[in-house]
Design a protein around this nucleic acid. Sequence first.
DNA 1: AAAAGGGCTTGACATTTATCAAGAAGATCT
DNA 2: AGATCTTCTTGATAAATGTCAAGCCCTTTT
Lengths: 194, 194
Amino acid sequence: MYDILLTYISQRAVTPITAEQAVLIRDAFKPKKLRKKQYLLQEGDVCKYLSFMVKGAMHQYSIDEKGNEHIVRFGIEQWWMADRESFEMQTPTRYNIDAWEETELLQISRPAYLSLRDAVPAVMEMTQELDKRGSIAAQKRIQAVISYTAEERYLDLLKTHPYFLQRFPQHMIASYLGISAETLSRIRKQALSK
Amino acid sequence: MYDILLTYISQRAVTPITAEQAVLIRDAFKPKKLRKKQYLLQEGDVCKYLSFMVKGAMHQYSIDEKGNEHIVRFGIEQWWMADRESFEMQTPTRYNIDAWEETELLQISRPAYLSLRDAVPAVMEMTQELDKRGSIAAQKRIQAVISYTAEERYLDLLKTHPYFLQRFPQHMIASYLGISAETLSRIRKQALSK
DNA sequence: AAAAGGGCTTGACATTTATCAAGAAGATCT
DNA sequence: AGATCTTCTTGATAAATGTCAAGCCCTTTT
């Protein structure tokens, strides 16, 4: 299972990974399994690990005063999960992250991550690449949510991340889009007839 | 005016800037002035420069089929302006960036930026710090826009970036919040009476 | 000084979306 | 198998927000 991680890193870096470095990486990450509905992170916790998803599906969400879930992010195989802010600043998180499907992770602690980044250039490069893509994607999503109607956002999601629609229930997709489950159901019905 | 930039960088980096490096930085950035309403970047252009704002106020926005502006980002003194995606990938941008107030910039081209980052560790560190903060802020804004009502988002902006409200007209603030100018006007009236 | 334009507010009305409630189909648990 | 839970859909209604139009005030331009 470490192979997936090693391949993932090298594909996103310029500098190749040496055999010694590969060992460092293996040693730094510990495997962890989560059952359905198990928490990776709960509101109030400090996010101690950065987790690479080997298998499964998770979602990151906040809960408002009325008890409604608001989904901020989905994650599936080959995505990283963590609350960035909490992990970087070591402050309590306002989010929950839990497993929607049976999930397998490779986890690294923050101290181990910091030294690994210094020891392995490819890890540093991958991190930067991820940050870059992350902020570009976040900006697009912001633009979408302030400029487009609910229907346009749904159609865009259908185009860019169709696999989300197959792996998460509709009420989660609705929450991710910032609309109610009923509205999404009606939008889909309408979209069909076109 | 280069002092502002040098101070800005050293405050955001761990490694100090040597005298030789300061010269490299000075040489890499060229000053540029923009009058009100002048474009820094227009839809379809490739974003060639990363611009540090020494003075002034700008906004980055897209325009939809109906001709409506949707403001994605504001910038004032000590902010960086560029379309990240276009600058990194050298692809045509979907955004416009223009000066709302008289603006002074320090600009660096992409090749100069890449070599400066390698030559000056502090620049590299600052970049990473910015990316990190950028993605955290973007995530918060996404969460706000899918979870909160228009009024809550306005009150939050009032708390976190009150200076925006003083420097940009209300219809731009409304667009930034993803609501119409009329709705913002009504929200403010209501908020007063509380 | 007059004219033109931009920004803000207000009212009337239309549209979109949320909320509440109910029911059907399927999955899961015991 | 039966009970329970979840998901999805649909209808009725309410609430939030957008759109259009008009007017006022202030600034800029001529």
